[in-house]
Design a binder for these strands. Structure first.
Lengths: 197, 197
DNA sequence: GTCTATAAGAGGATAGAC
DNA sequence: GTCTATCCTCTTATAGAC
């Protein structure tokens, strides 16, 4: 109810949507109010009527992005399929690797990192995501501590895959990182006593 | 010979050193010529005497940073120790995790990504680094294709560890990602037939 | 609520003396 | 080679009409 588009708020929605798109492509610091205005099609003053400053616009736009992105991950990781298959589905999920992660890239954004209101949703996103993956590892029989470590590694591999793909302009980097990680998971699959830590 | 500090080039060296430090902390886009001048202690005109533009300064400073960072990795990965130990040493190497990777963070920098002269050394750095790690995996008995995939995953885990640590302000994220990755490598260590792909 | 016009300041680069 | 002074543009934000 609070965030659904309603009459009299068309400009606000257009601004947030445009901001999300521009932040995904260029980050927050490199996105100017003018760009947001031009992409959304609203006037200069409308932005500052709805949002006191650029940071206030970014805070709401980023909150939407992290919520949406976490929801997508949750759909894949929360199915009733076998835990191991859920983890591999998440790892192999189709991604625009050379574009970079729209959340992860914000950790190098000076505007995001210098405002707690912007940094916090980014940190919470990753904390929550790691918990989702860790739950799947536990469902697969890994004890809690080992599951958290492996889940952190899995999320890190995806984030690193984005960095490598973007640096080289080669989406194959993400693919190789993911397959290398899955190969290591598979190597230990039928060990005598199963995962230990 | 070409790059060693010499008489008459004091300002040039001071500028490059200051730029490297500022780029590591804030990135290229967010670093202004004025900041470089103030940190280096030289005058406004000296910067533009030695470097035609901000991008020219960045190109040389980034080349130095990638060369130095790759050299440090090479020292750890190129010793005569057992291959498996070299890989673990590289993964567990002491890092300022919450500061982010001084090379990897540049993949989210709009100035770097929009100039081929700046983007290329970043891509080459990762290509070379993955090859160094892949060589170690091959020394450890992994066939070439599997070694490249595992090496890409290893480098990605470190890059992702930086992203997670920076996002949450918690260096423990890097540690957990590394230990989770090593745990997966260890799980498959004494499998009946050894690594397959 | 939405628009146009405009102002204060920082970023990037140049001019020209020394 | 190095410096100070200056210029132009863009970013961010405000003013005030509609």
């Amino acid at each position: 109810m609070t965030s659904s588009p309603q009459r009299g708020h068309a400009a606000r929605e257009l601004l947030l949507s445009a901001a999300q798109e521009l932040y995904a492509a260029h980050g927050v610091a490199a996105t100017t109010p003018r760009q947001v205005i031009e992409l959304s099609g609203v006037g200069q003053g409308s932005l500052y009527h709805h949002f006191p400053s650029k940071v206030d616009l970014a805070a709401e736009a980023l909150h939407r992005t992290t919520t949406q992105t976490l929801g997508a991950a949750s759909e894949i990781l929360g199915t009733g399929l076998p835990a191991r298959g859920r983890i591999e589905s998440y790892l192999r999920k189709d991604r625009d690797a050379t574009a970079g992660c729209r959340v992860g890239r914000l950790t190098a954004d000076p505007v995001v990192m210098s405002h707690d209101d912007l940094r916090e949703p980014v940190g919470d996103y990753f904390t929550d995501l790691i918990q989702l993956v860790a739950a799947a590892f536990m469902d697969d029989g890994t004890p809690p501590d080992g599951a958290v470590n492996r889940a952190t590694a899995a999320v890190a591999v995806i984030q690193g895959g984005f960095v490598l793909s973007r640096a080289t302009g080669d989406a194959g980097q993400m693919q190789r990182a993911v397959e290398g990680f899955i190969a290591l998971m598979t190597d230990g699959e039928s060990s005598p006593a199963g995962p230990i830590n």
